[in-house]
Design a protein around this nucleic acid. Structure first.
Lengths: 337, 337
DNA sequence: GGATTCCATGGAAAGGTTTCCACCACCCGA
DNA sequence: TCGGGTGGTGGAAACCTTTCCATGGAATCC
């Protein structure tokens, strides 16, 4: 391994000068810089990142804590983060969480160890104690798809999104509208589904409809669960004419259940999702669009701001939402009006 | 920041003993270990990864070089890698490449700097010189979705896959079968499309059909390009009755073009893709399945083997392929037989 | 019981970089 | 011509850990 000492010897200068030269310090004369750079080229020298990080106290790494990497929404956000990071000296380190234990462990170790200069947590709301730890350690934290008053975050207004989706269905004449979403109490502390449900309730309330508890079904996230919950809804004595799913993945489960039951969409059942993942376009799913990739970019920028400014107040970025009408929603069936 | 010295002071032992205790060295007595661990708990100590990496000469990091993170296939492979990495001390560092320059830079810096203990390169075939650099640096390299005799790799037999896809179409009675794929010469050195085309030619040859150059269209990867190429094919005087697309993404472009032209699939045009990404199932795309996520796991395991063994000969893992018939392929139109 | 061996432990050195401080040479002004 | 200042450069210290070596005490053996 070639070190800075080798370069110094080769260039006939001291190690300090080499360090200053490669770090673009202004107090190196041009001829000296050229000598150093020549030696760097000849020896194919690159500084050792661990030594650098140790001495500087900065790692040039950003940790991304992301649950369920397989989920399309997670991927699109990650991809946005990646493009925000390119052309910066930062690298992205992936912390894929699949169990609540991993979530806790990562939150702990990332604050205490100086493992990364900053952290972006996707969909995982931190506890107050965890935020304390990050602030004490001076490690900036940015939330993507979850929020907290004390931490910078980029989120959609899920309540508003739930309202938009529900209004879309109401506008089509639907009155028996069901909701399929995640469990309110879940081990990871995801909250978006619950908030979307909130918007759904409010929109119904505004329309003078009392939300029917039997039409609100929740279960662990996933297509299959959503499919099962839909079956339950369709088996009701007075089944819904429309279903609002808290995510596109779940909406796909709803569609699957309808297909299996031979129920025509949208003639007999309207379905609206949330997220507008890539698949939604292909299958013609009506959904609420949120700019997933852009939100990754924004989260990255929030983090860079925090890394630059040091102690700045938390910033909140609200992402725009909009209903994208496609082929899975239509007018309520005649007899149901 | 709490260091090993603080722990040593608190526990009333030397730093060496603390280091041995937290690293599970057998030569620490049980009472001493307990004292140390108590101090570790009380101070909430975690060792500094940079210092550790510097001293040990190992970073506990694995670099993943992956082009076009947005592509579904890349994501599924990455996700497989992530699950192979969990329950190991390794973290995944993402190197997203979007330009040929980035590819070159990453290949260079990862070999020279001790940035990661090992590297998994997705879809990017290294040059001989680059392999030399890795071997000289003692950094194991594993290829995923590309191959090289001197490097461990996990690949599908693309030639065979191309053959399978083409045979499927031949078996349905098609004779004028087109190919839509990537440019053979591309700045990243992707080769899978070209190999799949090879299989296509051979299958046609085996069936006594001379491949018509007009039916082979290539362009930069992407849905839109594929769509455009398909338009060209459909505009031919004697258009194909079936199209084999080198990837599902491209197959979606083919389907899009057919839809825009009002051509019924599969009655008037059969379409088969390659990869079997998640979307394929939703849209009913017939395709060649390759175990994407599993291939990520395998690549991870190959790398772990190399990290453990040191100097072991390169291993090659061939992944199984199989045609998944769905709704976009059907018998050739009568008049075309 | 004394000598020897063994083993747990303490502490210094080393790993490669950055940064601070000291030094030297040069320049400018008097 | 000399002194003071300036600015570029060299090199030591420090960042935090692991590991090696030396030490001392206990245990073992004759």
């Amino acid at each position: 391994m070639v070190t800075i000492l080798d370069v110094a010897a080769r260039a006939g200068v001291g190690v300090g000068t080499v360090s200053r030269a490669i770090n673009h310090s202004p107090q190196v004369t041009e001829p000296t810089r050229r000598k150093v750079m020549a030696a760097v080229e000849e020896l194919n020298y690159l500084p050792n990142p661990s030594a650098r990080a140790l001495k500087r106290g900065r790692t040039s790494r950003i940790a991304v804590v992301v649950p369920f990497l397989t989920q399309p929404a997670a991927v699109e956000r990650l991809s946005g983060l990646a493009s925000a990071t390119r052309a910066t000296p930062y690298h992205l380190v992936l912390f894929a969480v699949e169990t609540p234990e991993e979530r806790d462990e990562y939150y702990r170790s990332l604050a205490v160890q100086h493992q990364a200069d900053g952290v972006v947590a996707v969909s995982l709301r931190p506890r107050d104690k965890e935020i304390d730890a990050f602030q004490q350690a001076g490690v900036p934290l940015v939330l993507l798809d979850s929020d907290h008053p004390r931490v910078s975050h980029a989120v959609t207004d899920d309540v508003e999104g739930g309202r938009l989706a529900t209004r879309h269905l109401l506008g089509l004449g639907h009155r028996r509208i069901a909701f399929v979403g995640d469990l309110t109490e879940n081990p990871f502390g995801f909250t978006s589904s619950a908030r979307r449900c909130d918007g759904y309730r409010r929109a119904l309330g505004d329309a003078g409809i009392h939300p029917d508890p039997a039409l609100i079904r929740t279960g662990p996230h996933g297509r299959d669960t959503a499919s099962r919950l839909t079956m339950e809804l369709l088996d009701l004595e007075d089944p819904p004419t429309a279903i609002f799913a808290a995510s596109d993945t779940q909406a796909l489960g709803v569609l699957q259940a309808a297909r299996e039951r031979g129920i025509r969409v949208p003639q007999e059942l309207s379905v609206i999702g949330f997220d507008d993942i890539e698949v939604a376009g292909y299958v013609g799913l009506t959904t609420v669009n949120q700019p997933l990739e852009a939100s990754g970019v924004i989260a990255g920028e929030l983090l860079f701001d925090a890394l630059a400014d040091g102690e700045s107040p938390p910033a909140a970025q609200r992402l725009p939402l909009e209903v994208v009408p496609r082929e899975t929603t239509g007018p309520a069936p005649r007899d149901a009006r």
